[in-house]
Each structure stands twice: as structure tokens, then as C-alpha cells.
Amino acid sequence: MAVTTDIGVMASAATARRPWRGPRLSAGALGAAAACVAAFLYLPIVVLIVFSFNDNVVTTLPLKEFTWRWYESAFANEDLLRALWNSLYVAAAATLICVAFGVPAAIALDRIDFPGKTIFRRAVLLPLVLPGLITGISMLNLFRVLGLNLSLETVILGHGTALISVVVTQVFARLQRFNRRLEEASNDLGARPLQTFWYVTLPNIKTAIIGSALISFTLSFDEIPVTFFLTGRENTLPMYIYSTLRRGITPEINAIGTIIVVASLVVIFVSVLMLSDKGER
């Protein structure tokens, strides 16, 4: 599949030395264009953060006084807190599923030959490019047939299905670079396959697993399209925000949004480091 993008390799590649600087297209113009794109990427995030501290009910310029009041009201909002808690529960459980099924799937793709492997690979990786809506609807259909009531648990199953591919691609990429002689050496020194996996293979793919798990957690925490179809009476935080947006913008959302964005930035930054060669030792 053309879309099995490997974050680790790219972050590693970024650190590789390259003496060659490419065709001499005007560096100035290119730099300016690049700066514009970078600004474009971060401007909305800055706006979000700035207005979460702005003492004004609407997000208009000029800025007014600095205030914590939106944070205070966000943390006084019972519905919001409940949704936050639900989201954490869903993301944690979905991440467990992703790791529990994604790591074996990556190992199977890396080293086991079986009939239908191509179809299996395509299916496992499909949700990377597949709109979440389709995963959500198809699983909604399944739960209807099974007579299962929608709940946070059905959301967890949905997120697991949609996000396994994240763990699979990253762990698979790391396994591909893993020197198989190490496992032979371990076997040779008397270690059984499980011991070899535990003492030799796992330590070498550990950072890829943790890194991709962190990404899965963040994505599940923010997920809407799958959640929309699979949740019951309980709301996750993004669903709560989504539904309040129908009623219009409140700076409360800016406040909780700022917290989410900053937390995500930190988590993602850590995971990208883990997936790069720094994580490989």
C-alpha cells in the first residue's frame, strides 16, 4: 500500500547527514514560502491559546484583559468533566487493544507467510486512509445485527479497529530494520522463542510500541467520526465539544481545547522522538 508511512524512518532520515544541497532554487523565496506554510500550520493553534486567556465572550480583536475564568468555568462544568473522563477511559482501553492486536499483527506481517497475507495486510492498514465514518457505520451495522447496545465499550471496539493500523505500521517498520541474527544468537545461547522475544526482540521494538501507543491514545482521545456512530448515551470529550458547537462558540471550549492541544503536543513530541532513531539506541 502506498500509504504505509513510517514516522520513525523519516524522523531518522531527518538527522542523517547530507552534504548535497539540491538544485539551487532560490533559497530565499523557498524559505519564505516554507515559513508561510509553517505559520499557517501554527496560527490557528496560537489563536486558540491566546483567546482562551482573553476576557471576552466572543473571539474578536482587539484583545481584552488576561483571565483564567474560562478555565475555571470549564473545570466547574460537570458534563465536560464527565466527558473528559469518558474520553480518557476510551482512549486507554482502545490503546490497549491496538497494542495487544497490533504488535502480533506486525510480527505476523514481518515474518510469517500464510495464504491471504496480502488481503490481511491491506485490511489491517486500510483504516489509515479509510474515512472513520465508514468504520463507524459498518460497525454500527454489526452491533445492530448482534443486538448490542451502544455504549462507551462499543466506541472502544471501534477505535481499536480504526487505530490498530497506527501500531502495525510503526512496529512493522521497526521489525524490518531489526537484525534477525540477534534472535538467532539468543536461540543459539539457549533461549526459547518466548524468552528470545522477551529479552531480545521486545527491548528492541519497545520504543516503537510505546511511541505508536501514545499516538493511538491521542487519536482515540480526539476521535469523532467513529465515535459519532458508536456511542450510546455517554459522550466523549470531542463529542461533547462537537455538540456544544451547534449552540455556538464559547471561550470555555478554547480553554479546554488549549489544555488538550498542549497535552497532545507534548505526548506526540515524545512519541515522535521514540519512533526516531534516538528511540532505537
Partner: peptide, 11 residues
Amino acid sequence: WVSYLLRAYTW
């Protein structure tokens, strides 16, 4: 990977 919803919402 940062919140899709919030990034759309800021616009």
C-alpha cells in the same frame, strides 16, 4: 495528530 476537531474549530 493534534486534535482534528479543535484544529477545524479554530478556523
